[in-house]
Every structure is written in structure tokens, then in C-alpha cells.
């Protein structure tokens, strides 16, 4: 029952690649914006925070449609990417972009909380000991927020691997190109292949549970 077909292996590999790619894309802005909003106080902070968290609460197909409008042939960025041969829609790049956009709010929120938990007086003391602003960030703030940031990475990866709604709208269901695990499950349900659904569902559960356990362990390490 658990022998995977070539197509299922392909979906698993693609999901892993998309998950890693989306995590790599998401983490730098999540860290920068998380730190910025954790330490600053200004008039429109709540508004910016809301915009950044919006994909978390919007229906994924709405987000996917927005991305389709943006990256489509008649969209703002589509033609510019089509010209050098880097089309997005219905390619693996669309899977990465859709997953990254959906994972970003989780990663950003976890990073912001991680930075908020760092005692702001510690980097300040580092400054009085001769550390520049950048030095104190990399030698004090970042190491102290490390557990939360690693936890954010795991959550972003798990969210990316499980992404379906925005992906199906922007990337479609092209075997070997955009058929990730959740899309493959959808495909199996459509074709009434119950055994395939179970196999893929078990894989999804293993991946999701592994990510949650890893995230929890990292969070505990942060607090210990």
C-alpha cells in the first residue's frame, strides 16, 4: 500500500523543493520586517501589521487570484517576466511564489514575537561595550531570537508544503511541473483513486506532524 508511484514520488520531490524555496524566499523579509515592527513605534504600525498578516485570514483562492492578476500575461509583472523567458503562471515558480505568499504571515508573526521577547536593554548594553548597531544585532539580538526564528522557518516550510488554494489558481495542476502533494491528493480525489489518496494523505500527515514537533522542540530550546 505504501509503495509510491513515479507520479507520487515526483509530487513529493516537488513539494520538498517548493517548501525549501518558499522558506528561503520568505525568511529574509520576515526577519527584517519582524524586527522592524517589534522595536519600532509609529503611527501606521497597526495598519502595516494588518496588511502583512492579511494572507493568513483571506481565502487562499482570493490570494491566488490576486497573484494571477499580478503575474498573468496582462498583469503588472507578467509581461516583464515572460520576455526574458521566466514565465510564472502554470510553472514551478508559481508554486514557490504562491506558497511563499501564504507562508509569509506565519513566518513574519513568529519572527516578530521572537524579537519582541528579546530584552531591548541587552543590545543597548552591547552598544555601551563598543558594539555598533549592526554588530549588536548579529551578536546579541539575533542569537537570542534564534529559537523563534528557527521555529518560524519550520512553520513556513510546513505551510508551504501544505499549500493548495493559491497554488491551484496560480500554478494549476501540471504533472511533473506544478503537481505538489496537496494538488496530487486533489487529483486522486477527482479520479476516485481511494488508495492513492490514503498514501498521499499519510505522507502529508507525517510531514505536518514532523514540522510541528520540530517547531515545538525549537520553541522549548528557546525557553530553556
Amino acid at each position: 500500500m505504501f509503495a509510491l508511484s513515479a507520479g507520487e514520488w515526483q509530487a513529493l520531490r516537488l513539494s520538498a523543493v517548493v517548501g525549501l524555496g518558499a522558506t528561503l524566499v520568505v525568511m529574509p523579509p520576515a526577519i527584517v520586517l519582524g524586527r522592524w515592527l517589534a522595536v519600532s513605534s509609529f503611527r501606521f504600525k497597526a495598519l502595516i501589521d494588518t496588511v502583512l498578516l492579511l494572507p493568513l485570514v483571506l481565502p487562499p483562492v482570493v490570494t491566488g487570484y490576486g497573484l494571477l492578476v499580478f503575474f498573468g500575461r496582462r498583469g503588472s509583472l507578467g509581461p516583464a517576466l515572460d520576455a526574458p523567458g521566466l514565465p510564472v503562471v502554470f510553472t514551478w515558480r508559481a508554486c514557490v511564489i504562491a506558497s511563499a505568499v501564504m507562508a509569509f504571515p506565519l513566518a513574519y508573526r513568529a519572527c516578530r514575537i521572537a524579537f519582541e521577547e528579546v530584552d531591548a536593554r541587552l543590545p543597548a548594553v552591547a552598544r555601551t561595550l563598543g558594539a555598533s548597531r549592526t554588530d549588536s544585532f548579529f551578536t546579541v539580538t539575533l542569537p537570542l531570537a534564534r529559537g523563534g526564528i528557527l521555529s518560524a522557518m519550520v512553520l513556513a516550510f510546513a505551510r508551504s508544503v501544505g499549500e493548495f488554494g493559491a497554488t491551484i489558481v496560480l500554478a494549476g495542476n501540471v504533472e511533473g511541473e506544478t503537481r505538489t502533494l496537496p494538488v496530487a491528493v486533489f487529483q486522486e480525489i477527482q479520479s476516485r483513486g481511494a488508495e492513492g489518496v490514503w498514501r498521499l494523505a499519510v505522507l502529508c500527515v507525517i510531514l505536518a506532524a514532523g514540522a510541528l514537533v520540530a517547531s515545538e522542540l525549537l520553541a522549548r530550546r528557546k525557553h530553556s
Partner: peptide
């Protein structure tokens, strides 16, 4: 003058040692 250029040391009530 930036704090790291002042050569002014600071010790607080709870020491503020780097926990990592």
C-alpha cells in the same frame, strides 16, 4: 557620538549579562 564610541560603561541593577 554613538554609544559604542563614547567609552562610557554601563552597569544596571540586574547586571544585564548576555544569557547566550
Amino acid at each position: 557620538v554613538a554609544p559604542d564610541r563614547r567609552a562610557v560603561g554601563f552597569v544596571s541593577q540586574d547586571g544585564l549579562l548576555f544569557p547566550h
